[in-house]
């Protein structure tokens, strides 16, 4: 049986506890669950909101592909990835990754891998809205994110 993968791209918030429960309930074979949530920072009070644009269809497909690769590579027992779009205020959730495995290392690594690839290849773009009412423009992609992704490649 292949490990269940749940991917959702949605405007509304998610609940971390219920997503963990969904993934682990009714199973006694899971030994480790790792969760990562990414939140909107206020950038020292200057940011009023982030607006997330996405490519409907491809966003889901690309995250699913990344999750399946993580399941394969780290022998995960389950993986969930949820990414929000639309206007997100400081302190609110943006992204959630939940991974399950027999032992902790695979769950940690799997979540890390999913996030590194999600940031560089899932079609989402962030635009900043500043506290003074102006638009701060589109967030630039960071070289550090490419570097983080590339560390998973065979040397």
């Amino acid at each position: 049986m292949s490990a269940p993968v749940i991917v959702r791209v949605q405007r509304e918030d998610f609940d971390l506890n219920s997503e963990v429960a969904k993934l682990s309930s009714g199973r006694a074979d899971i030994g480790a669950v790792a969760t990562f949530s990414g939140l909107c920072r206020d950038e020292a009070g200057t940011l009023a909101a982030l607006e997330l644009e996405h490519y409907p269809g491809m966003a889901e497909a690309e995250i699913e592909r990344i999750c399946r690769e993580a399941v394969e590579r780290f022998s995960l027992q389950a993986a969930t990835a949820i990414h929000r779009y639309g206007k997100i205020m400081p302190g609110e959730n943006i992204v959630l990754v939940v991974t399950a495995s027999r032992h902790r290392q695979a769950a940690f690594d799997g979540a890390n891998f999913i996030m590194d690839f999600l940031k560089t290849s899932a079609p989402f773009w962030k635009k900043e809205h500043l506290g003074d009412g102006t638009t701060g423009g589109w967030v630039s992609a960071k070289d550090a994110d490419d570097t983080a992704r590339d560390r998973w490649s065979p040397k």
């Binding site: 996405h54 490519y55 269809g57 491809m58 966003a59 940031k119 989402f124 773009w125 962030k126 992609a141």
Partner: peptide, 29 residues
């Protein structure tokens, strides 16, 4: 660029493409 919702590089032939997307580097997560 993406052809039919899959990433491609600039050398990729576009023959048979239903949908071609163009966008900047991604900044999700």
């Amino acid at each position: 660029a993406a052809i039919n919702q899959e990433h491609v590089d600039h050398k990729e032939p576009i023959a048979g493409a239903r949908e071609i997307a163009l966008f900047p580097p991604m900044t999700g997560g």
